[in-house]
């Protein structure tokens, strides 16, 4: 092997080793500083079945946290708890929470009907009629619809038997 080839080999080796080390360190760091603390904190909340943290490939991308909930009696309260724990664990990093239940097609169709009233209430503020209409529509398919509203979100919890659908609609237009 001549000197030039040896130097080229050394350079490529240094390049590959650098990438390997930096990625390795990044994966370890993400595991120990994000995934593990998040899992630990969120699993301690009642109703949380599983947590999947989708680590971002780019530094500016938000961390995507997919949470599966079992049937919870008070969705807004559970969500507030989840949000508090995430903020605490991520210490200012950007994140997105995706709440999943065990939806059926029937519940999805029901939500589709309700969403028209959600959109309407966001425009004209007719939240009491949203609650009323939602419950009416749910009753037609033997389901229960719990609609809660705070200053940020509209919390929609539709349940039929063991199945449940959770939706969180932001009241700010850009959040929708």
């Amino acid at each position: 092997m001549n000197i030039k080839a040896a130097k080229l080999f050394k350079g490529i080796l240094a390049f590959a080793a650098t990438l390997l080390i930096l990625y390795g360190v990044r994966i370890l760091w993400q595991n120990y500083s994000i995934t593990m603390p998040l899992n630990k904190e969120l699993m301690s909340i009642n109703g949380v079945q599983s947590v999947v943290v989708d680590k971002p490939t780019k530094v500016h991308e938000p961390i995507n946290i997919a949470i599966s909930l079992s049937s919870v009696s008070n969705f807004p309260k559970t969500y507030t708890k989840i949000n508090e724990k995430v903020v605490q664990a991520l210490k200012g990093k950007a994140y997105e929470i995706d709440i999943n239940g065990n939806e059926t097609e029937e519940l999805e169709n029901l939500y589709s009907d309700i969403s028209l009233y959600v959109e309407k209430s966001l425009i004209d503020g007719s939240f009491p009629s949203l609650v009323e209409k939602s419950q009416e529509l749910a009753e037609t398919v033997d389901s229960v619809a719990n609609i809660s509203i705070d200053d940020k979100y509209i919390y929609i919890h539709i349940a039929k038997g063991d199945n449940a659908l959770y939706k969180l609609v932001s009241r700010q237009s850009e959040g929708r």
Binding site: I12, A14, T18
Partner: peptide
């Protein structure tokens, strides 16, 4: 210098 170049490129 080849190692340093490789290192810098890697980073």
């Amino acid at each position: 210098k080849e190692i340093i170049i490789g290192l810098a490129a890697g980073i």
